[in-house]
Amino acid sequence: MSITFPDPHPVSWPEASPAALGLDGARLAEAVAHAAAHETPWPYDLAGHIGRGGFEPPPDNEVLGVLWPRGAPCGMVTRHGVLVARWGDTREVSQTFSVAKSYLSMLAGIAVADGLIPDIDRPVRESVDDGGFDSAQNAPITWRHLLTNTSEWEGTLFGKADSIDRGRNLGVEGQGKKGSRALEPAGTHWEYNDVRVNRLSLSLLRVFGRPLPEVFRERVLGPVGASADWRWDGYRTSWVTLPDGRRAQSVPGGTHWGGGVAIHAEDQARVGLLALNRGAWGGRQLVPASWFDLSTQPCSLNDTYGFLWRVNKSGSWLPSAARDAFFASGAGGNLTWIEPSSGIVAVLRWTDPAAMDGFIARVRAAIAG
């Protein structure tokens, strides 16, 4: 079935009854009720949550970027680009935490298409000469290593050391460090490490020579008709000088220490629809289709992780989703679920992560019905 692309914001998304899109309305309503009834356990005061050690204890938890109170739970479900369900305020702007990582992946794909990154398997230092890849530990790191969280980059960036996230236990959200460990050679160990993702973001800023929010607006959110209500903030410590003499903030791939992408569910769904259509929007290729082929393949060291997207080919990430599904996932209960085989793009904001698979199971039951 062909994809329907929504008109630019503020026009409402095209809507249809669930039945018109091949969905059982009652079962879809059960999915919506399930999501609405399972709010994230995180408090509304995000600054207080992180400041009290929500991710790690002092002094490593020092907040460097802006933090706002989170919004109430909301979300939406689309099929083939048509809205079939929504709940809450889908135009409420909140920070997204690591959903931003998947947006960095798109920007990396654009940099490759523009020739700014000639080969993702070549060392980053061949394109970025700022001292960050000079050491023996860091010199072999490639763009692929950064994109798959296998870089083992060592250092301190914008006041945060990579060791803060080294050995972190992701089994329980926000649990903090399980224990320190020795570094491995680049490409031999997978670790979810926000400092290293921020090193990727700074490297992309270097090759574009422009603030990444400008590039994201021009190349992605503008062409898909998103609102102007989003923002992507850096840290007070992340200002750098560009070749043209301008000062710009390098932006993080999340909200671990504040900042990051603040956006509403409808704009997130537009990005998800672009990903569903492998980077094309209304006949225009914004991100290379081949980049999504690469991005949604599991890396060799983690079968649930691609190029800063969560993937489901093993069925171990969110078991109720189809095996071709992939996700932009952020702490606190933020998820964009993209499923090519069913045409589903769904956005969940501030939903208890423990309830997400149940939501997906109910939506897929509605398709089966």
Rank of each mutant, 00 (worst) to 15 (best):
I110Q: 05
T90K: 02
A35N: 07
W68D: 12
G53V: 14
F158N: 02
I141H: 00
D121M: 06
H38F: 11
P58C: 02
A35T: 04
D129W: 11
L116N: 08
L116A: 13
D121R: 14
R122D: 06
A29E: 13
D60I: 10
I50A: 14
L146K: 05
A111S: 11
W153P: 01
W153R: 01
E154M: 06
L28Q: 03
A36I: 07
L146T: 05
R122H: 05
F158T: 01
A139I: 03
T40G: 07
E39Y: 03
V112N: 09
S127E: 15
T90C: 15
I141N: 00
F55H: 11
S94V: 14
A85Y: 00
A33L: 10
R125P: 03
R144S: 14
T156R: 14
V82A: 09
A72G: 10
A33Y: 06
D60C: 08
G71D: 08
G132W: 05
P118W: 02
A31R: 04
N149T: 13
E92H: 10
R91A: 13
W68L: 10
A72I: 09
A139D: 07
E56P: 01
V63L: 13
D114M: 12
W42C: 08
V66L: 13
V128G: 00
L28Y: 03
A113L: 09
V128N: 00
P43T: 04
V112M: 14
S151C: 12
R79T: 07
G48C: 09
H145S: 02
F55A: 11
N138T: 00
E126Y: 00
T96E: 11
E126N: 02
S98M: 12
G132K: 02
D119T: 05
R125A: 13
I120R: 10
W68V: 11
A108R: 04
G159D: 01
A139Q: 09
V84M: 04
P118K: 05
G48L: 10
P69K: 04
F97G: 02
S105T: 09
V77P: 01
I50Y: 14
H49W: 14
P69Q: 09
H80W: 11
A29N: 09
T78V: 06
V66G: 12
I117S: 01
R125T: 05
